[in-house]
Design a protein around this nucleic acid. Structure first.
Lengths: 200, 200
DNA sequence: TACAATACCAAGCAAGCGCTTGGTTAGTCA
DNA sequence: TGACTAACCAAGCGCTTGCTTGGTATTGTA
């Protein structure tokens, strides 16, 4: 999946200098926030001097944009893949929940957290770019939830439900501990039970 | 309620210079973020020069702390009041949801948003102080949700449910528009239906 | 082996930052 | 009236910030 996107030039190779910089930026932006992270912090993290960053990106904000852009592109693809393997409406909703939780709590977690919490640090142009990518991503959610609503699995309006779920899921980054008792699948089932009325 | 807390010296009078500064800081910190808000921004907002801020607070971080401290104190009191008027477990959960939504989307919304999203800008000491106040606040939630679970209204473990709800509710600040079709009561009922199994 | 293109260094600039200092003004109350 | 205090000004200091510039290694390709 990742290799394919790298080969297509959609995502920067994480082993390249630029790719490693994007990864490091994601971590630092999540941990310290975009504003508190200096270009010197970023450079030190990949072992270069601060001025050398600007060989890879024209300014600091573009690094943030790259982090967000690649995160959303990658996770849109993995959601599509997960949807393709689900057979019922409920399975599709659960698949999306698992996918989003994995993206938030797993390897791309840093970037996803940045995507959610550092939005306002983007300039107008960048916001437009990311927004278009988000729309594609969100449409996958809306389609699945609308289908679930049509089948009577869900009572809340799909786009309201999605927004409530967005908050609930993205907030997990602030409390969920994957070394604790509850594994990610169980967390996903709990989240599913917010959305769907089971008859147990 | 507010007058009482002001009279007791728990909350700064919002009409005093210091109180107006806290209010303005809440708005600016929400809109621009703590880091992006300069002491010059803060001072200009209340019509003084930047240096004069430090007559009221020893440093910028203490302004953030004051914003958070007063927000949580005020809203803990209003939650207690709302709970006192509810008669069943379900009513109590709904009361807390409404209360939290009001605090996020109403007058204290700026401060509550700051409380949720600017946590890491507090230093260690301040985090401890605010954490103690949060514990009191969260215990009100846990008690209500535990009661609901005991009565079979809820299937998820109370402290997991609370955390999912925290995210869902606090995220509303990013999308809910009170001039739109859905009023706050309906939003609260939607949120309640995440938590509680109805037999409708 | 020539030669770009890529990746980086060394040094530092201009602007903005939080905060300090010493002093002034306006209001309160004995 | 005079002592006291809360609120603020005027000026600027020391530091950090994002970013620039001109040059140098390193790498891939023919």
């Amino acid at each position: 999946m990742l290799e394919k996107l790298v080969a297509e030039g959609i995502i920067t190779d994480p082993k390249s200098p630029k790719g490693r910089l994007i990864q490091a930026a994601a971590r630092l932006f999540r941990d310290k926030g975009y504003e508190r992270t200096t270009v010197r912090d970023l450079a030190a993290e990949v072992g270069i001097l601060s001025g050398s960053l600007f060989h890879h990106f024209k300014n600091k904000e573009r690094i943030l944009r790259a982090v967000m852009e690649e995160a959303i592109l990658l996770n849109t693809e993995s959601m599509k893949a997960a949807l393709a393997e689900a057979n019922t409406a409920e399975e599709r909703v659960l698949a999306l929940i698992k996918c989003e939780l994995k993206s938030i709590l797993g390897d791309t977690g840093a970037a996803m957290t940045v995507l959610v919490f550092e939005w306002r640090s983007l300039n107008e142009d960048s916001q437009k770019v990311i927004l278009e990518l988000r729309d594609i991503y969100e449409q996958l959610w809306l389609d699945a939830l609308t289908e679930a609503k049509d089948e009577g699995l869900v009572v809340i309006e799909p786009f309201i439900l999605r927004r409530l779920l967005t908050g609930a899921l993205s907030w997990t980054v602030n409390w969920y501990d994957d070394s604790g008792e509850m594994d990610l699948d169980e967390l996903a089932r709990n989240a599913l039970s917010l959305a769907i009325k089971h008859n147990i």
